[in-house]
């Protein structure tokens, strides 16, 4: 599977990473190369094999549905690059 410049642009956007137009060809080459390496997986007969979704066969525990923590918005906001009036602040989203 080879990735062209348009696909590279699309993947970068999907990943929300800005890539300069002039770097897209190089990126497409790198991604194609890595995907080429993954093509080896096509040699494996996976007919009837379940995909592995859990590493250990144990059932995930469920916790009780109750509040056990919280009530400290100042701690939640302490590391924010921009926090105002108890909220995370971001550029305007809706016009």
């Amino acid at each position: 599977m080879s990735i062209d410049k348009d696909t590279a642009r699309r993947v970068a956007h999907l990943a929300r990473i800005e890539v300069a137009e002039t770097d897209l060809d190089k990126l497409a080459g790198e991604l194609s190369n890595i995907l080429g390496f993954m093509e080896q997986l096509n040699e494996v007969d996976v007919e009837g094999v379940e995909p592995m979704t859990s590493v250990t066969p144990m059932r995930l525990k469920r916790r009780a549905d109750k509040v056990t923590d919280g009530g400290y918005p100042e701690k939640i906001l302490a590391n924010a690059p921009d926090a105002r009036e108890g909220f995370f602040a971001v550029p305007k989203v809706v016009e």
């Binding site: 970068a12 999907l14 990943a15 990473i17 997986l41 996976v46 592995m52």
Partner: peptide
């Protein structure tokens, strides 16, 4: 690079060919 590869193998149209296949190989 890895974040973009990850976004690609999970994206619509490629999920089965890459991600799901890799998970089946993981089972093996």
């Amino acid at each position: 690079r890895r974040v973009m590869i990850g976004a690609y193998v999970l994206s619509a149209g490629f999920y089965d060919a890459y991600y799901r296949r890799a998970q089946r190989v993981r089972t093996l």
